[in-house]
C-alpha cells in the first residue's frame, strides 16, 4: 500500500475572493428581505408567515454551509455523511408539530 493519495487542497474556484463577496451580498440581501417582510407582516400571525421565514433561513443556511464552510467543494462522501443525518431533525420537527397541535387542542378547545 505504498500509494499515497495526494490531496488537492482546494478544489474551490480560483476566484474564491469574488465568490466570498458574492455570497456575502446574497446573505445580506436575504437578511434585508427578512427585515422587509417582517415589517410588512408585522401584526399578522399565521403558520404561512412562520414557514416563509423558516424557508428563507434554510436558503441562508445553504449559502453559509456551501460556500463559507466549503461544503460545496468537498468530496460527496463527506457532504452526505454530514447532511443525511439531518433527516433526524426533520423527523423530530414532524413529530413535534403533530404533538404541539394536539397539546394546543387539549389545552384551549373545550
Amino acid at each position: 500500500m505504498e500509494h499515497i493519495e495526494h490531496i488537492e487542497h482546494t478544489e474551490s474556484p480560483k476566484d474564491m475572493k469574488a465568490q466570498i463577496w458574492k455570497t456575502f451580498w446574497i446573505l445580506f440581501a436575504f437578511t434585508v428581505i427578512d427585515i422587509v417582510l417582517y415589517f410588512f407582516l408585522i401584526s399578522y400571525h399565521s403558520m404561512i408567515k412562520n414557514w416563509l421565514f423558516i424557508v428563507l433561513g434554510i436558503v441562508k443556511a445553504y449559502y453559509i454551509v456551501g460556500v463559507f464552510m466549503h461544503m460545496k467543494f468537498e468530496r460527496k462522501t463527506l457532504m452526505y455523511s454530514i447532511i443525511i443525518p439531518m433527516v433526524f431533525v426533520i423527523f423530530f420537527v414532524t413529530l413535534m408539530i403533530i404533538e404541539g397541535d394536539y397539546t394546543n387542542i387539549l389545552r384551549w378547545f373545550k
Partner: peptide, 23 residues
C-alpha cells in the same frame, strides 16, 4: 447542530402549544 435543533424544536413545540400572539 442536533443540540441546537433540539432547543429550537422545544421552543417551537412550547410556543405552538400556546395561543398565537394578539395582533
Amino acid at each position: 447542530a442536533f443540540t441546537f435543533s433540539s432547543l429550537l424544536i422545544a421552543y417551537g413545540f412550547i410556543r405552538y402549544s400556546f395561543q398565537s400572539p394578539i395582533p
